[in-house]
Design a protein around this nucleic acid. Structure first.
Lengths: 113, 113
DNA sequence: ATGATAGTTAGCATCATGGCTAAGCATCAT
DNA sequence: ATGATGCTTAGCCATGATGCTAACTATCAT
């Protein structure tokens, strides 16, 4: 039971920081080095490295080191659990709306009898 | 620039806690009192109240007090910015995939000439 | 008017987060 | 072999998040 929740928590938490979202947006255009990712943020390298670790631990990106260069790339499927959760949430909400509507219709019928 | 990002940050942060997600799931079935929400969590009332405040500040729920009872209800549209961000992210990713594919096709053509 | 119920407020302890600097290590170019 | 480059590690600091208890307020029932 908890495994699933933990995954979502990691994902949502990783996405809750604007710097991390901007890194993801940058990576959506293609892989990049750590330094490339740090430049537009105005943050120091160790700070950016930490954000990268958070993204990687959430499974949102992968990284690989070639020589002294670490290249980062997104993992697009990683967002699937988030989508699923949103869809599930919406489904429940809509099911409830349907029940309310059915109830309202029945109430109208009862009144007209 | 920041306004948009702030909204997403609040939303993602609110969703990053399993207790808060369980509250949302419960509320998807219909409005509930604070105490109703606290019971399944095993957490004390003040703690749950705080989670509720976070959800409300993110715009994910609304609350109203009638007498001594505060009733909480979800705001389904509140998740729209999250969906939009996900869709946008996916669109960028797919656009890049298309470019890669076009590149690969062009490379194959070049070779066969 | 008394007591039970439902929330609220205040304040505390603890740990996580996000930023930094300074120093270290590995690799590449010369 | 030396220096520049790119990343990594360690450690500090300030702030914020999550849980709690205790005490307070406001309402409802009797």
């Amino acid at each position: 039971m908890a495994k699933h929740h933990q995954e979502l928590s990691l994902l949502f938490h990783a996405l809750s920081d604007p710097t991390r979202r901007s890194i993801l947006t940058r990576l959506a255009e293609g892989p990049a080095r750590v330094t490339d990712l740090s430049e537009p943020t105005g943050l120091r390298l160790p700070t950016v490295m930490r954000h990268i670790s958070v993204l990687e631990e959430a499974g949102l990106i992968t990284t690989a080191k070639d020589g002294r260069i670490r290249t980062c790339a997104i993992v697009p499927e990683a967002l699937d659990p988030v989508r699923s959760w949103l869809d599930q949430q919406r489904a429940m909400w809509e099911a409830r709306l349907d029940r309310l509507e059915a109830f309202a219709i029945k109430a109208m019928k009862d009144r007209t009898q």
